[in-house]
C-alpha cells in the first residue's frame, strides 16, 4: 500500500510537467491549428531563464587583494558578488537562494516575447500548410533552439537548486500511520505539483471567465464565424500562443531543481507530451491535463521493481501501450472533440 501511494505521489509531479506542456501544446493546436514540435524547446528555454537569472545574480568582480594562489600558482582573487555589495551579505544570500522562484518573474516577459516572436516570425507562415510541414519546421526550430542553448551554456547539466527551505523531504508515511521512511516525498516536488495546479487553474479561469477567453473559445469552436463578426481572432490567437509559451516556460523554470537543466531536456519531454495530447484528445484542454497526470502516474507505477521484474521493459513502453489502447477504444482520445484533425 505504501509503495502504491509513493508511486502515485511520484506520478503527480511527473504528470504536472506533462500536463503543463501538453496544455500549451493543446492551446496552440486548438487555437492556431498548428502542431508545434518546438514546444519542448520552449520548456527548455524556460528552464534556462532560471539558470540565466541564477548566473546574473552570481555576477561578481575580483577582490582587490589576492587571497591565495590558483591551480597554476598565480595570485588568486576571490569573487565578490555584486548582489552582496548592493544588498548586504544576508539579503544577497537570500536572493541567490531564492533565484528559482524569482526566475518566474524574470521568465514571464521573456517567454511571452519568445512566443510572440516565434509565432509572428515563423509559425504564422505555416498556418495553411499541411501538418507535416508544420511538424518539420517546428522540429527544425526546436533543434536550432537547443543548439543555441548548448553553444552558450554547454552540454553538461547545470545544477539549479531549490531554496534551502525546500530542499528536504517530507515523511508522509508517518502522517498516514506507516512506519518511518515508507513514503518520503521531496518538498520541492510538492511545490511543483501545487504550482502546476495553480497555473492550470489560472489558464482555465482565464479562458472561462474573461471576455478575451470567451472569444478565444469561440474562435477555437468556429474561427470563421468569429471572424465574420468583425473580431480580429488572429491577434487573440497570437496572444494565446504567447500565453502557451509562457505556461511551458514557467513549467521549465520550476522544474530546474527537480532535474538539473540541460539543452536536451525539451526533447526528453516533447514526444511524451505529444502522446499526452493525443491520449487526452487533440484540442481538448481538460483532456490534456487529465492525460498528463494519468500517464505520469502510470509511468511511475511501471518503473516499480516489481513491475519491471514481471514485464521487463514495461517502464519504457507503458505510455505508448496506453496510447494504443486508448486510441483503439476511443479514437478521439479521452476527451477529444468531434471534427478535430478529422477533415
Amino acid at each position: 500500500m505504501d509503495a502504491i501511494l509513493l508511486q502515485i505521489l511520484n506520478g503527480l509531479d511527473k504528470g504536472s510537467a506533462y500536463a503543463l506542456i501538453a496544455l500549451g501544446l493543446t492551446l496552440i493546436f486548438g487555437t492556431l491549428g498548428v502542431v508545434n514540435f518546438a514546444h519542448g524547446a520552449i520548456f527548455m528555454i524556460g528552464a534556462f531563464c532560471a539558470v540565466t537569472l541564477s548566473r546574473l545574480l552570481s555576477l561578481s568582480h575580483p577582490s582587490a587583494e589576492p587571497t591565495g594562489t590558483d591551480f597554476l600558482g598565480n595570485p588568486k582573487f576571490d569573487d565578490v558578488l555584486y548582489v552582496n555589495e548592493w544588498f548586504g551579505e544576508t539579503a544577497g544570500a537570500f536572493i541567490i537562494d531564492w533565484s528559482v522562484p524569482l526566475a518566474i518573474l524574470f521568465a514571464i516577459p521573456i517567454m511571452v516575447a519568445v512566443g510572440f516572436i516565434m509565432e509572428r516570425g515563423l509559425i504564422k507562415h505555416f498556418y495553411k500548410r499541411p501538418h507535416a510541414d508544420q511538424i518539420l519546421v517546428t522540429f527544425g526550430l526546436a533543434i536550432v533552439l537547443q543548439e543555441v542553448i548548448k553553444y552558450f551554456y554547454g552540454a553538461n547539466p547545470i545544477p539549479t537548486p531549490a531554496p534551502e527551505v525546500f530542499r528536504g523531504s517530507f515523511d508522509f508515511g508517518v502522517l498516514l500511520g506507516f512506519e518511518a521512511n515508507a513514503i518520503i516525498y521531496p518538498y520541492w516536488r510538492m511545490v511543483y505539483f501545487a504550482f502546476a495546479l495553480v497555473l492550470i487553474t489560472a489558464v482555465f479561469g482565464f479562458l472561462q471567465f474573461t471576455t478575451f477567453g470567451m472569444v478565444v473559445r469561440a474562435g477555437m469552436a468556429d474561427r470563421e464565424t468569429v471572424g465574420l463578426l468583425g473580431i480580429n481572432i488572429d491577434k487573440r490567437f497570437t496572444i494565446m500562443f504567447a500565453i502557451a509559451a509562457c505556461v511551458a516556460g514557467l513549467a521549465g523554470v520550476m522544474y530546474t531543481p527537480i532535474n538539473s537543466p540541460n539543452y536536451h531536456m525539451g526533447m526528453d519531454f516533447l514526444v511524451l507530451s505529444f502522446v499526452v495530447v493525443v491520449v487526452g484528445g487533440m484540442g481538448s484542454l481538460p483532456g490534456a491535463v487529465l492525460a498528463g497526470f494519468l500517464l505520469g502516474i502510470l509511468e511511475s507505477f511501471a518503473s516499480m521493481p516489481v513491475m519491471t521484474s514481471l514485464i521487463p521493459g514495461i517502464n519504457q513502453i507503458i505510455i505508448y501501450l496506453v496510447a494504443i489502447v486508448v486510441l483503439l477504444t476511443r479514437p478521439r482520445g479521452l476527451m477529444g472533440r468531434r471534427g478535430v484533425m478529422e477533415e
Binding site: 505504501d2 509503495a3 509513493l6 508511486q7 511520484n10 509531479d13 511527473k14 521512511n181 515508507a182 518520503i184 516536488r189 527537480i258 532535474n259 531536456m265 526528453d268 509511468e299 511511475s300 511501471a302 518503473s303 516499480m304 521493481p305 519491471t308 517502464n315 519504457q316
Partner: peptide
C-alpha cells in the same frame, strides 16, 4: 538487495529511487 536496470534515456529517476528506502 536488488539491481534495477534503468534506460539510458531516463531523466527523472524518482520512480527508481523511491522504492530504495523500503
Amino acid at each position: 538487495v536488488n539491481n534495477v536496470l534503468t534506460p539510458l534515456a531516463s531523466t527523472d529517476f524518482s520512480s527508481y529511487i523511491a522504492p530504495v528506502l523500503n
